[in-house]
Amino acid sequence: MTDARTEILARIRAALGGGDQRVIGSSSDDRQPGLPITPQPADHVREYRTAGEHAPGSAEVLELLVDRLVDYRAHVVQIPADGVAAAVAAALIPTATGTPETVPGAVNGAVEPPGDGLARAPRAVVVPPGLDPAWTAALADAGVEVRTDTREAPLSNAELDSAAAVVTAARVAIAETGTIVLDGAPDQGRRAISLVPDVHVCVVRADQVVQTVPEAVRLLAPEADRPQTWISGPSATSDIELDRVEGVHGPRTLHVVVVQGP
């Protein structure tokens, strides 16, 4: 008996083998040579847009990205570079700069500030090892426990589950689809950290924002073997009567901090 691999490859070659063109409307005994039914199209047809009309990081693509993210019910702020640390802290700690808008009906939208009357200690915020230390420091200054997760010393699933939030950077963002891509670089971390905690704060630099999907794919291609997570809004389902509900297994709240300027 041949092994499955050999047999399947042989079956495919036989199927593609040609010379066995079926003549429709004839029984097997009166086959006549027919003509190919579908002409084989030329190699890749690529007449679609491989780039948008707006440059990466332009005001137009940023506006488009924000529009799409808001449509997915993500929380978006646009701030200058020196405001990132404060914006990250503000996303996580409502009392720091007032109460951010919350997703209607969202549960546990943010870290409960200390002394909120609940018999629960403030929970930790997870960060990847390469996150900008200034952002982490701002959180620590606000009294939040910051836990660094690394490939070498990963937090357990239970630890991630008990954490309140995660803060990451991003690799690239796609304006037309409202998509942020993480590729596991040190400022983005392991895939699990942006998945298990219920709140994800993601910092995207303006120059990382492209207009179209092909622009992003071509940026990612040289390091295609990195684990990628494409994120378009908070987790969602439309499985019940096609009615979209934001927030299922992945983070139910997504904050995007878009950093303007060079």
Binding site: D71, I174, T179, P227, G250
Partner: peptide, 9 residues
């Protein structure tokens, strides 16, 4: 426009 999550590994 895009599904919430796509994983590539």
């Amino acid at each position: 426009r895009m599904n919430p999550y796509t994983s590539l590994w």
